[in-house]
């Protein structure tokens, strides 16, 4: 490494050069605060098709991101499959090895929590984890959320060619906003709600598979209702609360992921508009961290709830009162 022997380094000059370049870039084209919109923006003016009950179906920018996530994961899975097919059951090479090590760590975590049900629970954990992780980290790619069509809007900016200029439009006329081609799929509530629904629903499925019909005594607990007058009534009430908490799980799952990632991307916009030079880099590091933490939390909570569902509620209860 010749560069590391240089007294003043090399990379620090690169960083300085980029900072100076960004100062000039921000002077020439001052960044504007993008329009924040909660639902995904449709990219097409005409619906792709219209379904009888659901209504019009547009191609939205989050769907584009979803397709990208799918392609990345499918390529990974395909390369692992090919390697496993050709190379027997040896170690995987390249990025497959990294994925393998990652999945091995996840499996170890699942096994230590869920025991013999690890094989049934692990695919949900790993799929949620991988999808959310890839989706979250897509936010870090330059151009995502910032390159797109110019759309006419009531509160937009003046457009100069294909760029927006930081200039308020004259009152009464229409300005333009950017509709990005790719918007991180985690900022689409459809994605997070879908994952949360699957997670909670599959938790019930695995609970029934593990315990049979006895699983539902967790929600409709009449075991002790008549033997122990006061505690029985409390147990019954707790069962009902469990039922409510299952629904609140959907809410907290979906809005936790959505909130963190949406807030992160809004913070990136705002910081980028306020301090156009350098500050965003730190926020990007933070967002990378938040991205993996949220993926881990979503997957691990799913795994833990599933593991709890496989264990009888009764034993826990006895322990609690003992």
């Amino acid at each position: 490494m010749e560069q590391s022997n240089w007294r003043w380094g090399f990379n620090r000059w690169l960083v300085l050069a980029f900072i100076i370049a960004s100062v000039f870039a921000a002077r020439a084209y001052p960044p504007i605060r993008p329009h924040v919109q909660l639902p995904a923006e449709p990219l097409s003016h005409h619906p792709l098709f219209t379904l009888p009950v659901i209504g019009d179906f547009y191609l939205t920018n989050t769907l584009v991101a979803l397709v990208l996530v799918d392609i990345i994961l499918l390529l990974l899975a395909f390369s692992i499959r090919q390697q496993a097919k050709n190379g027997g059951l040896q170690m995987l090479k390249g990025i497959g090895g990294a994925v393998e090590a990652f999945l091995e760590a996840l499996y170890g975590m699942t096994e230590s929590t869920a025991g013999k049900w690890a094989k049934a629970i692990f695919p949900y954990f790993a799929t949620i984890m991988l999808m959310v992780l890839v989706a979250n980290w897509m936010e870090l790619i330059p151009g995502v959320d910032s390159i797109g069509f110019l759309e006419k809007s009531a509160h937009g900016y003046v457009a100069n060619g294909s760029f927006l200029v930081k200039e308020e439009v004259a009152h009464g006329t229409e300005g333009f906003v950017v509709v990005p081609w790719i918007r991180v799929v985690s900022t689409d509530l459809n994605f997070t709600v879908a994952l949360a629904l699957i997670s909670v629903f599959m938790t019930q499925v695995i609970g029934v598979r593990a315990q049979g019909a006895a699983y539902f005594t967790k929600f409709w607990n009449t075991h002790t209702l008549f033997n122990k007058p006061v505690f029985g009534a409390i147990d019954f009430g707790v069962g009902l609360l469990e039922l409510i908490s299952e629904f609140s799980k959907i809410l907290s799952f979906s809005f936790r992921l959505f909130g963190n990632i949406f807030a992160g991307s809004v913070m990136l916009f705002v910081i980028g508009a306020l301090v156009p030079v350098f500050a965003q880099s730190a926020i990007l590091l933070l967002e990378a961290f938040v991205g993996i933490i949220q993926a881990l939390v979503f997957g691990m909570l799913t795994m833990t709830f599933m593991a709890q569902a496989t264990q009888g509620h009764g034993e826990h209860h006895e322990e609690a009162h003992a």
Binding site: S248, L251, S252, F255, R256, G259, I293, L296, V297, M300, L301, T304
Partner: peptide, 13 residues
């Protein structure tokens, strides 16, 4: 992380 997730649920509401 699990505990943080539960605590965060309130902020999410």
């Amino acid at each position: 992380i699990l505990g943080i997730a539960f605590a965060e649920a309130v902020a999410i509401y």
